[in-house]
Amino acid sequence: MPKHTIDPNQWIDLYSDYLFNFTVSRVNDREKAKDLVQDTFFAGLKSMKNFKGEASERTWLISILKRKIIDHYRKINSNKGKAEIRVEFNSEDDEGSWLEKRVADPDYKTAEDTIINEELGDAIYNCLNKLPQKQATVFRMKTIEGLETDTICNELNITPSNLWVIIHRARITMAECMEKNWF
């Protein structure tokens, strides 16, 4: 008997942020990440019948997304991670002699940094998923999207004091959860 069930109507609310964050950290392109997440959901819909319920919905969607990311890199035949080679002519005398110059990648991060940040991102999203819906929405809008207090209050029809109480409760739960799972 399958342990997990599938419900596409809940996918966006439950997994879109997690999948999006997972993708952005791997493709470094917001628009591309959005497309890949959308493609993942579409592919998920098409292969829903193959879902056996052995893994959770999120694990299953992540496995589809990983394949989409690999396909993306195959398509663009990316040179990501390789040193850029610039070819310059030095002077008139040197004309025709090639100089290869290795240029450091300005966004260079060690593999360890990347892994730690990805795992930290996962831990944060796991804790965020444990918050009640309203707290999660307000916390996400304020902390991750970085929206102004007034904007959030207008959008959600709450007062600033309500907002800070919600943020406070969310931060307590987040800190406790991160204490258990990360710190």
């Binding site: 942020d17 959901f41 991102g121 999203y125």
Partner: peptide, 27 residues
């Protein structure tokens, strides 16, 4: 402060509410 530091370090990002709504509609 520890929580704030972790959030900054992780550079987590998310979809905007409007992007989520569009995605929901498309799905």
């Amino acid at each position: 402060k520890k929580l704030t530091q972790s959030l900054k370090q992780s550079k987590v990002t998310c979809l905007k509410q409007s992007e989520k709504e569009n995605l929901k509609e498309t799905l």
